[in-house]
Design a protein around this nucleic acid. Structure first.
Lengths: 126, 126
DNA sequence: ACGTTGAGATTACGGTTGTAATCGTACGGA
DNA sequence: TCCGTACGATTACAACCGTAATCTCAACGT
């Protein structure tokens, strides 16, 4: 049934690099982290262990070290986080979010174009 | 400058009732909470105090009790939470979120209609 | 004047999170 | 064979969170 594994902010950074490419060992995860994340290796190991305990990643021992791979799927995580936020803030629907962003002038013309394209609005006069 | 006052989940519930109507005292907040939130009055008072300390609400003493009102604006909060999530998950843009929901078949026809209306797609043949 | 009571203030306490340092130990090199 | 080293495992620790109970003191009623 897959209970909703809750991933913290920091843990999510680790997942991101594992989603990018896996399996990877702790050190590889460490070096693959974006520059904006400035941790010690020890921190990465802690997070990997927490993720293991949560069942969000799995580890395979090769020699003396472990290689980690995601168990939680990225799509599942995206959906979970998104719907949680939409529920908390906008009654679970996405249109009010877009409306809000629009009202607050936070939609670029690029955003609008992408959205229109998505919604099949492209069916105009060729 | 208004630093981004961070509101926790539980605190947000309290803010919601204050945004609905304010000022209110602790007891009024307590009774105005939705049924799904099942707290003791003490809990509400704790949260109100934490919000006070964070500067998210302000209190005015009348007789022996305090009446609370939001300082943090709802719109500001909505925008903050939304953009934070969009940044964390979708590179800060909203179209990929909608695309994802769509792919995962999480957009109802009502959602689609609302979105189209919002995006001025309504300009069709009358 | 005094006690009751009800409001806010203080304290509690276990869990999670961010961020590591340190410990223990198995492998590989000398 | 012995030692250093490089990993994972264990431990640390403060802040924040959810969730309250208890304490304290001022005001109201008698």
């Amino acid at each position: 049934m897959a209970e909703p594994v809750a991933i913290s902010e920091a843990e999510a950074h680790v997942m991101q690099v594992l989603w990018q490419h896996s399996p990877r060992d702790a050190d590889e995860v460490f070096t693959a982290l974006p520059d904006c994340v400035d941790w010690q290796v020890a921190t990465v190991k802690t997070l990997l262990n927490r993720l293991l305990k949560k069942g969000a990643v799995r580890a395979q021992k090769v020699g003396r070290r472990y290689f980690y791979a995601p168990v939680l799927k990225r799509d599942q995580w995206l959906l979970q986080e998104s719907t949680t936020l939409l529920r908390r803030l906008f009654g679970g629907r996405v249109a009010p979010l877009v409306a809000h962003l629009n009202q607050q002038r936070r939609l670029s013309s690029g955003d609008l174009r992408d959205l229109r394209k998505l919604l099949g609005v492209g069916t105009q006069v060729p």
